[in-house]
Simulated scan of single mutants.
Amino acid sequence: MTSIVLACVAIVLALPSVGSAPQTATADGRPRSTHHAVPWRATDIDGHAWSSDTLHGRVVLVDFWATWCAPCLEDLPRLKRLHARQGPRGLTIIGVSLDRATTRDFRSWLQRQAITWPQVREAGQYESPLARTFGVEAIPASYLFDRDGRLHATSLRGDALETRVSALVEAR
């Protein structure tokens, strides 16, 4: 019986945690994602083009959300803190809104909430080109990329998001 329990524990410990990417080590022993780069392009509501290529060298968090999504709204204070603390150190957050409101109403909402990172809105919500590129089926959905453009983790929230972003930013 004890050997069965130990075998089960070993299997569970070997499984990757939710929201993590498979890891290998770099020459200096630091963990490195084994995921490949995910090429993507988008234009924010101010007309600025963003892509995986133009953001190379920065840690990037692509955050799919909407103003009607309660869990998304719960994440906003943490995202504001991350943007303020880690933005100057190499983090770029790209919000991808699945809202149906007019651009004018959406801009007004962003201004009232003091959300200053770029926001993308594409027609089609879950069927939009960007949502389809990332395979978004529900929100909130986040995709964290390292400085080389490799997908490092998905669906991170709360403390796990903050910890992973900070580790990637500091990993220069």
Rank of each mutant, 00 (worst) to 15 (best):
V169Q: 02
V12C: 08
L144V: 07
V12G: 09
D146N: 11
D53V: 10
G47V: 08
P31T: 11
P22Q: 07
S142W: 09
Q125E: 08
R172L: 13
Q119T: 02
D146C: 08
D44P: 03
D75E: 15
L110A: 02
H83P: 04
R112D: 12
A66E: 02
V9K: 14
G47H: 03
S142P: 08
D159S: 15
V62S: 04
A114N: 04
H152M: 15
S142G: 15
I11F: 11
L130A: 01
E170W: 11
A167S: 14
V136N: 00
S108D: 15
T2S: 14
I115Y: 03
L13Q: 10
A25G: 13
D46M: 12
D28I: 14
F134N: 02
T133I: 07
A70H: 08
S20L: 02
S128P: 00
D148N: 10
L91N: 01
T24P: 08
Q119P: 00
A153D: 05
I93H: 13
H152S: 08
G95Q: 06
G95E: 03
L98V: 02
G95R: 04
D46G: 07
A42D: 01
H152W: 15
G57V: 12
V120P: 00
R89E: 08
L110T: 03
C8P: 09
Q125K: 08
D63R: 06
R121M: 07
A167D: 15
A101W: 14
A167H: 12
D53H: 05
A14V: 12
T163C: 09
V38N: 03
I4R: 15
G158A: 08
I11H: 12
T26P: 10
R164I: 11
E137M: 12
D148G: 12
T43G: 02
E122C: 00
W109R: 13
A131T: 00
T34M: 10
A141P: 07
R32D: 13
Q113L: 11
S17I: 04
G158Q: 03
V165F: 03
S108G: 11
T2P: 14
Y143Q: 10
W50C: 06
L6T: 15
A160F: 02
V60T: 08
L15T: 04
V38H: 04
A167N: 10
R41A: 01
D99S: 01
L55E: 09
A114F: 04
T24W: 13
L6D: 14
G124F: 09
Y143H: 13
G19Q: 03
H83D: 04
T116C: 05
S155V: 11
P22C: 07
S17M: 04
P129M: 03
G135C: 06
R107E: 07
S33W: 06
L61Q: 11
A171Y: 06
A114G: 05
P77H: 10
M1K: 15
S3M: 11
P118L: 13
A37T: 11
R164H: 07
P88A: 09
V96R: 02
R41P: 00
L98I: 00
A123H: 08
S128V: 05
R147H: 09
W40V: 01
Q113K: 10
T67P: 05
L15K: 04
V96E: 00
P71F: 05
G124I: 04
V5D: 14
